[in-house]
Design a protein around this nucleic acid. Structure first.
Length: 576
DNA sequence: TACGGAATAA
DNA sequence: TTATTCCGTA
């Protein structure tokens, strides 16, 4: 195709720290697999339009996170057709393509990270690192799963999912991106359990105190990376003051940056904002096929004046964003995981309550996790603990003051959602961090989760279309920090519940998945990985849950039974 | 207006 | 692989 209209709009400026060769994730181009390589994809294009203010009257973020409304279907179709040199494009065809996106695979987190954690350096991408592809229901819906087990860290469970976006039912011309479908699951070098960063009261767990963003704290998240002190592995210590000015995260230390830069950037922006400021967007790229003169004269949008967003509504909340978590741009809607992880079981009606009623997602979820996470919780501690100073911001933890961690389990085993204000004083961004032990089906996902200010800013702003149609926004609870049980994880619309079931059942078949093909042999053996650095003292506490089972065990029917039993027990605890 | 099957193109 | 095109159905 002559129209090499790959939009670099989607790329934030490349910081000097980044390797130029990794300007764009592989999956954005798919150069080797797609004959139409380097041609802009529809979802890229949609995002591109959404990014530009001049098309706000045509297409705009609206409603829930990742949700956008095509205000002028004909115009969007025209633009798309112009870009693709398809002058006969219309909304019917465009929508068909959009419907195809519903079942197209999402990009895969590359497992190249293993290279830099002392493992087999001969391995490269996902396919070379033991990933195997699950049986495909259909050609377009692969599901990739890889696992690694470790007694001290996370299993590496990577999967990708269909449904890059879906139609929002009941809302005209409204679709929603499923950015969060790209899940960096259990990034193997992350060790939250040992991290003062996460154990401290911070903006992730609702605390009002600043998170421990010292290099040491951050380094503690990555125990498998070499740590020879400040200014070494994770940080390039500058000559100026510590913090954002003096210390810079060495991005090359995060191997996933090389392949999933956008995901990683998002994660790091949220995790370590002082060290990883976000970037402004690129200048506009004409959404036109350069070869074709505009076959369509300029047309007026059919729907004008509707409130819309140049950014997703999550950024437009009423709450100020204060340093050190002030994001000048702060949000990249292109980022996988940029929006909520809506693919998880819904919170009960309680999720609609003010966020101060929410349980602490991290700690609560830790309680669900087998050792070592569950062991972070003192035995016998249960719901009803101190809310602490974080009460105003919705936090329910009390760790900062040395109080016992409150055990508050979610009614749904798989997911906990942090309240919209749980991220503390005005942070409008958040990150989902879900953690899981090997084989449990629980996952650690890093992504940029736009937290719930949209409830105030977005839901109130309905397009004329919606006003006319009386379409009701379904308030979905989004989180910036979630513990996600992939075994129950499904998408945010009803038919994705079915996927969740399928997912759960697919867990049982994972041994086959893993045993097929390369049998995961390309993944580094657990024993080849260095042990984590000093275990957290809390880890010596009696685990609420049993230690993480081995992968094989975790997938056995008996263990599944055990897990269900444990789940039941946990729920009993909640109710009691 | 939305959905999805089927054939087909690039 | 990622749409595009067409069309029947709801």
């Amino acid at each position: 195709m002559d129209c090499n209209c790959v939009s670099d709009l989607l790329l934030p400026p490349v910081p000097a720290l980044w390797t130029p060769g990794f300007a764009f994730p592989d999956w954005a181009y798919k150069p080797e697999s797609s004959p139409g390589s380097r041609q802009i994809q529809l979802w890229h294009f949609i995002l591109e339009l959404l990014q530009k203010e001049e098309y706000q009257g045509v297409i705009a973020w609206q409603g829930d996170y990742g949700e956008f409304v095509i205000k002028d279907p004909d115009e969007v179709a025209r633009l798309w057709g112009a870009r693709k040199c398809k002058p006969h494009m219309n909304y019917d065809k465009l929508s068909r393509a959009l419907r195809w996106l519903h079942v197209l695979p999402l990009p895969l987190i590359n497992l190249a990270s293993w290279q830099t954690v002392g493992c087999d350096t001969s391995v490269g991408g996902a396919q070379e690192t033991g990933l195997t592809t699950a049986p495909r229901a259909r050609r377009q819906t692969p599901e990739v799963v890889a696992m690694e087990t470790s007694p001290t860290s996370f299993a590496a469970v990577y999967y990708y999912n269909k449904r890059i976006l879906h139609k929002t039912k009941g809302k005209r011309f409204t679709y929603k991106f499923n950015f969060s479908k790209v899940v960096l699951v259990n990034y193997p070098i992350l060790d939250m359990a040992n991290s003062p960063f996460f154990l401290a009261q911070n903006h992730f767990n609702g605390g009002t105190t600043a998170p421990d963003c010292t290099p040491e704290a951050i380094q503690s998240l990555f125990p498998r990376l070499p740590d020879s002190g400040r200014g070494t592995s994770l940080f390039d210590r500058g000559t100026t003051a510590p913090g954002a000015e003096g210390d810079k995260l060495r991005l090359d230390t995060f191997p996933f940056l090389s392949t999933e830069r956008r995901t990683s950037e998002a994660a790091l922006q949220v995790l370590f904002p002082p060290f990883f400021p976000s970037h402004p967007p690129h200048p506009p790229h004409p959404p036109m096929c350069p070869r074709c003169p505009n076959p369509f004269p300029g047309r007026k949008a059919l729907i004008e004046g509707a409130p819309c967003y140049s950014k997703p509504p999550s950024l437009l909340g009423p709450y100020p964003r204060n340093p050190p978590f002030d994001y000048p741009w702060g949000f990249n809607p292109y980022l996988p995981g940029a929006f909520s992880l809506n693919n998880c079981p819904k919170l009960p009606p309680g999720s609609l309550y003010p966020s101060q009623f929410y349980p602490n997602p991290l700690q609560s979820s830790l309680s669900q996790l087998p050792h070592p996470f569950s062991s972070l919780l003192p035995p016998g501690d249960s719901a009803g603990g101190e809310r602490g100073a974080a009460g105003q911001t919705g936090g329910t933890n009390g760790t900062a003051s040395g109080q016992a961690v409150r055990l508050c389990l979610p009614p749904y085993p798989g997911s906990l959602t942090m309240g919209r204000t749980d991220i503390g004083s005005g942070a409008t961004l958040g990150d989902r961090v879900a953690a899981s032990p090997p084989g449990s089906g629980l996952s650690l996902s890093l992504g940029l989760g736009a937290v719930g200010l949209a409830a105030g800013a977005g839901a109130d702003q309905q397009s004329p279309t919606e006003r006319r149609g009386g379409v009701k926004q379904d308030p979905e609870s989004d989180s910036d920090l979630e513990i996600t049980d992939l075994s129950d994880c499904s998408s945010d619309n009803e038919n994705e519940h079915e996927f969740g079931l399928r997912k759960a059942s697919s867990l049982a078949s994972r041994p086959q998945i893993l045993l097929e093909g390369k049998k995961g042999s390309a993944l580094p053996p657990v024993t080849s990985l260095p042990p984590p650095v000093s275990p957290h003292p809390l880890k010596s506490l009696t685990p609420v849950s049993p230690p993480p089972p081995s992968l094989a065990r975790s997938l056995s029917p008996s263990l599944a039974l055990h897990e269900r039993h444990r789940e039941t027990e946990t729920r009993k605890m909640i109710h009691s």
